[in-house]
Design a protein around this nucleic acid. Structure first.
Length: 281
DNA sequence: ATGGTCGGTGGCCGA
């Protein structure tokens, strides 16, 4: 059972490339961020044709999150309890969608960027983290055996080795103590970065800025994660960061991150040959 | 060269 998370940076500009990646990657569930599309403009058919069910939440040309699944997609939830709003007037942005896929509670999350250390967007980012931590803590408290995956673009490099050079990040966002503390609160709440043990650093990144030839110079950041609850983390067999997908014309500035779980992890919702095939013969 | 690129949009803004 394979689960991926990927900030695609526009699903319409990148539809062919995303479809091709999904097709050859053979993933069962994909959490997508930054679709940059309203629900009306999301290319549902491209993925339905590949056998996926689609849940998308987009309300403007900004943000936008989706979950694609071929193991069922139930109890879709837009946003989480207490998720902060932003702007004047304050609006709830399209940064979180959850769904249960094959017994796993999957969240596709696009954490606010923060923009600058003293920008109102930075306070929004910290508040967003705190609300997520509070809600995620409640989910685990309600069911300590729950299989939960918090997937997405967390817009924080949790450790110094998650950026190419700390000297380049003086007075920058993504590495500040407040942001790292906010990220760590999710870890402390019981969620594990299950990819890191399989993709050790330094130099292992999920994002390279389009500017300044960052990819060619191998100057990236590890900011995309799949944080799993204890019961789900225990079932991980491997994980990879698909650096190849960052190459070439028309690439997103983020790469897909893929986690593989033990084969019997899917517990319900799957429409498979095994479920449909002959029994008691 | 104190920025170099993208995407959505058609006013520059966001990353």
């Amino acid at each position: 059972m394979k689960l991926a998370t990927w900030n695609v940076n526009s699903i319409r500009a990148r539809a062919d490339r995303v479809v091709a990646w999904v097709e050859r990657s053979d993933v069962d569930v994909i959490a997508i961020q930054e679709t940059k599309a309203t629900d009306e403009k999301f290319p549902y058919d491209r993925f339905v044709d590949l056998g996926y069910q689609v849940a998308h939440h987009g309300i403007s040309q900004w943000n936008g999150v989706a979950i694609l699944s071929r193991v069922g997609i139930e109890d879709v939830q837009v946003g989480f309890e207490g998720m902060p709003s932003f702007g004047d007037p304050a609006v709830a942005e399209a940064r979180a969608i959850g769904a249960t896929c094959g017994g796993i509670r999957v969240w596709s999350l696009y954490v606010p960027n923060g923009r600058a250390l003293h920008d109102p967007h930075f306070d929004y980012k910290i508040a967003w983290y705190e609300a997520l931590r509070a809600d995620a803590t409640a989910w685990l408290a309600a069911d300590p055996a729950a299989r939960i995956a918090l997937c997405g673009d967390f817009n924080v490099a949790p450790t110094d080795e998650d950026v190419w050079d700390m000297a380049a990040f003086v007075d920058s966002t993504h590495v500040s103590p407040a942001e790292r503390s906010a990220f760590r609160s999710l870890i402390d709440a019981g969620f594990t970065d299950v990819v890191r043990p399989h993709t050790p650093g330094p130099g292992t990144y999920t994002y390279w800025d389009y500017q300044q030839l960052r990819f060619a110079k191998r100057q990236g950041m590890r900011i995309d994660f799949a944080l799993c609850s204890p019961a789900l983390a225990a079932r991980v067999t491997s994980a990879v960061i698909d650096r190849e997908e960052r190459k070439g014309k028309g690439a997103s500035d983020h790469t897909p991150v893929i986690v593989e779980f033990a084969d019997d992890t899917v517990t319900s919702g799957a429409v498979s040959a095994a479920a449909e095939g002959p029994a008691d013969v």
